[in-house]
Amino acid sequence: MAINWFKYSAPTTFYGLAGKLIPFFAWPAAVLFVVGLYIGFFVAPTDAVQSEAYRIMFIHVPASILSMFIYLIMAGYAALGLIFKTRLSAMMAQALAPTGALFAFISLWTGALWGKPMWGAWWVWDARLTSELILLFLYLGFIALQASIDDPRRADRAGALLAIVGSVNVPIIYFSVKWWNTLHQGSTIKFTGTSMHIAMQHAMLAVLAACWLYAIAVSLARVRSIILEREANTQWVNALEEVRQ
């Protein structure tokens, strides 16, 4: 069976597809946030060491994971755009950057609010924290660089190079707690099993899934605007129902 894989890599078709997909990600995201936080606050027991403060984990860990994954996906799209010169790839990279930056910010913010009562400091120049801060700056650098270059194709190329080079920072964040002697604790969830109470795991996984779905929904919504902005001079955009009104 011949499937045209490039069909949806064209902004023309992807614009409509993305619009149809958004509710299928947005609504499950909302439900999973409610379920995850319900389990996290009402089912998961109080921690023996950290008391109620540990409940920050249910947003801190998913936000941190997402900030790293979104960066890799963004760099992947940027690389695809650089190699195959597909217009949509560069637009997807552009659409993912603000969401990734916001997750990096949430990771740092909730980390500070967790660090203060547990470590006695809002911030320490520890390997994990510093590399996550660099991740936020990489996102902001990518956004600023793209915004500063007028020619969109040159902006895509410059942004792609920054995104690809910056992706070496992601494994550094992930392994920082193993490579260096840091204040930040190691991973609680491992491939070999975890040391967490089952309700805590369920809460965290539900919020993680919610964050994933939210990130997809909001990025799809943003890429639709980016398509409209960048394809403004094309006939198909001007023939759209929402433009003709």
Binding site: S51, E52, R55, I56, P98, W109, L113, P117
Partner: peptide, 24 residues
């Protein structure tokens, strides 16, 4: 009251969801 950790716990969730709302 979150056993004395209210500021830290609600400060985390409050800002996180404010960020989501602003982004939307």
């Amino acid at each position: 009251a979150m056993n004395g950790y209210a500021f830290y716990v609600w400060g985390s969730y409050g800002v996180a969801f404010l960020v989501f709302l602003v982004e939307i």
